[in-house]
Design a protein around this nucleic acid. Sequence first.
DNA 1: CCACAATATGACAACTGATTCACCTTTCTG
DNA 2: CAGAAAGGTGAATCAGTTGTCATATTGTGG
Lengths: 214, 214
Amino acid sequence: MSSTPQRKATDAGPGTPKTARGARTRARILKAAEEAFGTLGYYRAGITDITRGAGVAQGTFYCYFTGKEETLRELVRDMGHKVRAHLARHVDGAQDRLDAEARGLRAFLGYVTENPWMYRVLQEAQFVDEEIYQEYYEAFGDAYATLLADAVSRGEVRPGDNRVRAWALMGMSHFLGMRYGLWQSDVSPDDVVAAVDDMLRLGLAPQPRSDDKP
Amino acid sequence: MSSTPQRKATDAGPGTPKTARGARTRARILKAAEEAFGTLGYYRAGITDITRGAGVAQGTFYCYFTGKEETLRELVRDMGHKVRAHLARHVDGAQDRLDAEARGLRAFLGYVTENPWMYRVLQEAQFVDEEIYQEYYEAFGDAYATLLADAVSRGEVRPGDNRVRAWALMGMSHFLGMRYGLWQSDVSPDDVVAAVDDMLRLGLAPQPRSDDKP
DNA sequence: CCACAATATGACAACTGATTCACCTTTCTG
DNA sequence: CAGAAAGGTGAATCAGTTGTCATATTGTGG
């Protein structure tokens, strides 16, 4: 049972490209890997699928990567950046945190439909290199919890365990993205967001809460 | 690109056991498969790992299963039943739906910590046979949405899109189970449930909602 | 206690797919 | 333009798997 003997967090592969051409080739390989992993799945995708997609020979792959795993790790890192950037861009003009939540979810649903591969690749990382998968969500969760805490201090959100809330919210987005962004579009993204927004603002309980303990 | 050529929903393998002994062996293999998939992951686990764990020879595996995939499908089906049964048992005496939600989440967190493999196996099914994974959650979501609709008609929950809510709630449980049940226990299950219960009852918005549009 | 049907065995053939490596091509530099 | 360094090639190698099959064991009804 040899878990994962080698590997540093920052291994850039055997040959970091020294010229623009090399960098382009490396990028092509990475893009092809994303497509191959996304459509075939990590394990079903072979190096041949990647190199064929990139239009290079097998050997070229090993000029830039030590193996399949490293490729996946790099993709996961990229995706983290891209998703964050996308969300940040769309949440920008929000009035308050609840508004930001709605916009964020909307943006996420859109991102998922436009980048269906991202989803699969990220999820599959869970079984290839659990650590990097954890890092991804832990980082996301930290940032999220901080945003909520700020909102609490601004009086936009009631106090509560923001870390737990963050994970709950990430889970919601994850499942809604999968179901309504990836699998079926039987409910429009805006309707999904509306339902969630309502739930997040008011909760599910019916009574107008005035009886706060006498 | 040959996706999935054969396979019926109800293929019981080449030899359904005819005696009690055979049934026992089959069950042992299934249990060993769960452990192997859970600890090593589906693709890393070989038939040898399974048969070794079950204490039988390689060939015996093929007396009861056509291959690895069939084993996984069967496990996923089992897990669906077991999780449901567990939740049903623990939600039983609930006062209302919101109470049931809290109890359900609590039970789920407990189940995850006690059956860490279930989690991995189920999630990995997503990449081995996406259809069965979808079925699992679609069935769960349907049942969930119905429960919510009933609660609405009983006046325990405000009206809204119950299907979307169901997926949101499943996502929450999923992520909270992963983070607080599987990865780290830095927050007690009861505290997790409390935070979520609060959010589900009252939402995140601070104002006591009396201003329902004049 | 015998015969036969279900079970179980494990060596092995056939195959898959990752990685290596000796060699070729392109590009840049002095 | 010569030479070197970076980039690129793909056939060959190598490790590990799956699934088969001829054979052995178990145990049960007659």
